[in-house]
């Protein structure tokens, strides 16, 4: 593996890791809806889904 090979690999991994981390930070810290998915689906039957409770996004 050449030095430029390492540079390309590390830069690509860093870009992907940064993008993935940013996305999941936004998703996991969002309070918009569905904080407890298990509870949401426990009482639901196919075709009779109730919309999950709306909570305002905290950034708004």
């Amino acid at each position: 593996m050449t030095t430029t090979g390492w540079v390309f690999m590390i830069a690509s991994w860093a870009a992907i890791l940064f993008g993935t981390s940013w996305c999941f930070y936004r998703v996991l810290t969002s309070r918009r809806h569905w904080q407890n998915p298990e509870e949401d689906i426990r009482h639901l039957e196919h075709g009779e889904f109730e919309p999950p409770r709306d909570t305002p996004h905290r950034r708004r």
Partner: peptide, 11 residues
């Protein structure tokens, strides 16, 4: 009946 929905965003 309501159309089926995803139960969670992560899902």
């Amino acid at each position: 009946a309501d159309r089926e929905r995803w139960a969670s965003r992560i899902g």
